[in-house]
Computed example of a mutant assay.
Amino acid sequence: MKKILLIVVLTAVLSCNKKEEKAHPHDHPHTMESETTYKNPNNPLDKLTYASKIDFSCNMDISKYGVSDTVTYKGKLYGFCSSVCKDDFMKKPDEYLAKNQK
């Protein structure tokens, strides 16, 4: 009985220690910690200067993972990891900006 209990406890502990990838909050083909999402050195959007290094919609670090879409809002340029995130931001931009300026 003690051996069975020990096996159950070890199994539970080992399954809890698995590193989970942080999934992207939108339906994207990548995750936020995937090595394949690092910036493409040939992407001209990655060479621009943005008002923030964070995609306000999903909180992805665009300075690390790159930009695939942009928008200018109130005279500032914002970068996004995807058009899905840009569209989400544009639904309520002032709310996103207020939330991220804390």
Rank of each mutant, 00 (worst) to 15 (best):
S63K: 12
I4D: 05
C85R: 04
L45C: 02
L14G: 07
M1F: 11
S83V: 12
K19D: 11
P25M: 13
K18I: 15
K53N: 15
F56A: 07
H30I: 15
V9I: 14
F80Q: 06
D61H: 11
L14S: 10
P25A: 11
P41A: 03
K102I: 15
K102Q: 14
N17P: 05
Y73G: 04
K92F: 00
S52T: 07
V84A: 14
S57T: 13
K39E: 01
C58G: 11
S52F: 00
K2Y: 14
G66N: 05
K99F: 15
S57Y: 07
S82I: 08
E95L: 13
K39W: 00
Q101E: 14
V71E: 08
Y65C: 10
T11P: 02
G79Y: 03
M90F: 00
P93R: 01
G75C: 02
M60L: 14
K99C: 13
N100K: 10
A12R: 04
M32N: 12
A23L: 13
K18C: 10
E33F: 09
S57D: 11
V9D: 04
F56P: 11
T49E: 13
P25T: 10
N17I: 13
K47Q: 15
A51V: 02
H26F: 15
K64S: 11
L97Y: 06
I54E: 05
D61M: 03
G66M: 00
F80V: 11
K86W: 00
N17A: 13
P44T: 01
Y38C: 06
T36C: 08
M60K: 05
F89C: 07
S34D: 13
T11G: 15
L6S: 08
C81D: 11
L10D: 07
G66R: 00
V84D: 09
V67Y: 00
D69S: 15
D94L: 02
Y65V: 06
S68G: 07
V71Y: 03
T37C: 09
F80C: 09
I4K: 06
Y78C: 05
Y96A: 02
P44K: 03
K92P: 02
Q101W: 00
T31H: 08
M1Q: 06
A98I: 06
D88P: 06
N40H: 08
N42W: 02
L5T: 10
D88N: 14
E21D: 10
Y50T: 06
S52N: 06
K3R: 13
L48T: 02
D55H: 06
A51I: 01
E35K: 11
V67G: 00
K2H: 10
K102E: 12
F89S: 08
D55A: 09
E95T: 12
T31C: 12
Y38M: 13
S83N: 11
T49K: 10
T11V: 14
A23F: 04
I62C: 01
T49S: 14
T70K: 01
C16H: 08
V13D: 09
M60Y: 05
N59G: 10
F89M: 05
L48V: 02
D87W: 00
H26P: 02
P41R: 05
M60H: 05
S68Q: 08
D69L: 03
D88T: 15
N42H: 05
H24D: 14
K3I: 14
Q101P: 06
E33N: 10
D94R: 04
K47G: 01
Y73F: 13
G75V: 02
D55R: 01
D46E: 01
V71F: 04
K22F: 14
L77E: 02
Y65H: 09
N42C: 03
K19Q: 12
V13A: 12
D87E: 15
